[in-house]
Amino acid sequence: WKVTVKGVEYTFDNPEEAKKFAEELAKKKGGQIHYKDGEFQVH
């Protein structure tokens, strides 16, 4: 499971962890999460 933040990729074994990480980042940066092709992208 991948989380991509401004072109930087983070990989997680667990989808729950990936989702949590993406949500935290989106909150911090005031961005939005897009889920696409099996990965979370924070913009």
Rank of each mutant, 00 (worst) to 15 (best):
L25P: 00
V42Y: 05
W1V: 06
G38H: 14
K6W: 12
H43L: 14
K20C: 06
D13N: 10
P15S: 11
F12V: 00
V5R: 02
E17S: 11
V8Y: 14
G31D: 07
V8E: 14
V42P: 03
V5H: 15
I33H: 02
F40I: 10
H34M: 12
K36E: 10
N14F: 07
A22F: 04
E24M: 10
V3C: 02
H43N: 10
E17V: 09
K36M: 12
F12K: 00
K6G: 15
V3T: 01
K27L: 14
E9W: 06
A22W: 03
F21Y: 07
K6R: 10
A26W: 04
N14H: 09
K20D: 08
G7K: 02
G7A: 04
A26I: 14
T11E: 11
F21L: 04
N14L: 06
P15K: 15
H43V: 15
Q41F: 11
K6C: 14
N14G: 09
T11Q: 12
K19T: 05
K19F: 13
K2M: 06
P15Y: 15
D37F: 02
H43F: 12
K29L: 15
Q32C: 11
K29H: 15
E16Y: 13
F12A: 00
H43R: 08
V42Q: 03
Q41W: 09
I33E: 03
F12D: 00
K2Y: 06
K28E: 14
T4V: 13
A18F: 04
E23N: 05
K27G: 12
V5T: 09
K27F: 13
Q32A: 10
G31V: 08
G38F: 13
F40S: 02
K28A: 10
K2A: 04
Y10S: 01
K6A: 14
E39G: 06
N14W: 05
V5D: 14
Y35E: 08
Q41M: 11
A22K: 02
W1N: 04
L25D: 03
G38T: 05
K29C: 13
P15D: 05
Q32P: 03
T11F: 15
P15F: 15
A26Q: 06
T4G: 01
V8N: 10
V8L: 12
I33N: 03
K19Q: 12
K19I: 10
K20H: 11
L25F: 08
E24A: 11
A26E: 04
Q32G: 05
K27S: 13
Y10K: 02
H34Q: 11
F21K: 02
P15Q: 14
K6N: 15
T4Q: 04
F40Y: 12
G38W: 07
K2W: 06
E23S: 05
V8Q: 13
K20R: 12
E17P: 02
K28R: 07
Y35V: 07
A22Q: 02
F21W: 08
G7E: 09
D13H: 09
N14S: 12
E23P: 00
W1L: 04
K6T: 13
K36I: 13
Q32H: 14
G7F: 05
A18K: 00
N14T: 13
G31W: 15
P15M: 15
A26V: 15
T4F: 07
K2R: 11
E16N: 10
E24C: 08
K2V: 08
E23L: 09
N14K: 09
Q32L: 11
E23I: 10
T4H: 06
G31R: 00
Q41E: 11
D37S: 02
A26M: 05
H34F: 14
G31L: 10
G30N: 09
D37L: 01
D37T: 03
L25W: 12
G30A: 04
K28T: 11
K2P: 01
W1F: 08
H34I: 15
K19W: 13
E16H: 12
F12E: 00
A18M: 04
E39Q: 09
Y35T: 03
A22V: 05
K27A: 14
V3N: 00
P15E: 14
V42D: 03
K29I: 15
H34V: 14
Y35W: 07
F21Q: 01
K36Y: 11
G31A: 09
G7S: 05
V5F: 15
V5Y: 15
E17D: 13
K29P: 10
I33C: 13
F12I: 00
K19L: 14
K36L: 12
E9Y: 09
E17W: 04
N14R: 08
F12T: 00
E16W: 13
V8W: 12
E17C: 04
K28N: 13
P15T: 05
D13C: 02
G38S: 05
